[in-house]
Simulated assay, not measured.
Amino acid sequence: MMKFRLLQAHEPLPMELLLEADPSERLVRAYCAAGWCMIAEREGSVIGVYVLLALSNTTVEIKNLVVAESFRSRGYGRQFLQRALTEAMHRGFQFVEIGTGNSSLDQLALYQKCGFRIHAIDSDFFKRNYPEPIFENGIECRDMIRLRYTVSS
């Protein structure tokens, strides 16, 4: 059985997992320190993580969401996303935003299937914020696609 819990301040970040979704340790540490880092555990092992960061009184962003490689393609990503939306609703947020690269085709499909709509495009975000080029699915990751979900009460 899988359970989610808030990572406590004294616990180390599951950095290896977090860096799979965001290769900048500096950025990961910054938003984890300012947000809520939720880990998913199964039989005592961390199988995934997501991080929520308040952008305003009404909007929270999912800054990182990753499933351990050995648990991928089994529906856990959707479960994590649904859990993050539930958490946002319980914390009183109206909107949940998530950003992903233009080359993250599977993530773009998943987010839209879960009710997110494309909200904005931050052109050349990855070129500005990461020193090394990022490639995924044979496509250079240049632009941040920002999606938004409206929480229903």
Rank of each mutant, 00 (worst) to 15 (best):
G101E: 07
L13N: 12
A40T: 10
L81N: 10
Y31N: 08
G75P: 03
R29Q: 12
N57D: 12
C32L: 13
C32K: 13
Y31I: 01
M38Q: 12
C32A: 10
R42N: 03
G48R: 01
L65Y: 13
G44C: 04
P14G: 13
L55Y: 04
L7K: 11
T86G: 13
K63T: 03
E97F: 02
G99E: 05
G44I: 09
V51M: 11
A34W: 02
C37H: 01
T59N: 00
I47H: 05
V66Y: 10
A84F: 01
E69L: 09
G77N: 07
L13E: 11
M38N: 06
E87N: 04
W36G: 00
L19D: 00
S45W: 07
L17M: 14
F95Q: 08
G75L: 02
M89N: 11
S45V: 13
P23K: 02
V46K: 13
V46A: 08
R91M: 03
E61R: 08
V60W: 02
L27I: 01
R74L: 14
S70P: 02
C37A: 12
G35F: 04
Q94W: 10
F95M: 03
R42P: 01
I98Q: 00
I98A: 09
V60Q: 00
E41N: 14
Q94C: 02
V51K: 11
V46S: 03
F71C: 14
A84S: 01
A40C: 11
A33I: 06
E41M: 13
T58I: 08
N57W: 04
F71H: 15
L53I: 01
Y50D: 01
Q8G: 13
R72A: 07
T59G: 04
A54H: 15
R26Q: 12
S24F: 09
N64D: 10
A40I: 07
A54F: 09
G44E: 10
Y76C: 05
V51D: 08
Q79C: 12
V66N: 04
A40H: 05
V28K: 04
P23A: 10
E25G: 01
H10V: 11
E41K: 06
R29C: 03
P23R: 08
V66M: 09
A40E: 05
A84E: 08
L6Q: 11
E11H: 09
S24L: 05
R42S: 10
A88Y: 03
Y31S: 10
A34N: 06
R26N: 10
F80V: 13
E87L: 09
A88I: 11
E20Y: 10
V51W: 07
V28L: 10
Y50N: 06
F95K: 13
G48M: 05
V28P: 06
E41Y: 14
I98V: 11
K63I: 02
C32P: 00
T86Y: 13
L27G: 00
N57A: 06
L81S: 02
I98Y: 05
L19N: 02
L19C: 05
I47C: 04
A9T: 14
I47T: 14
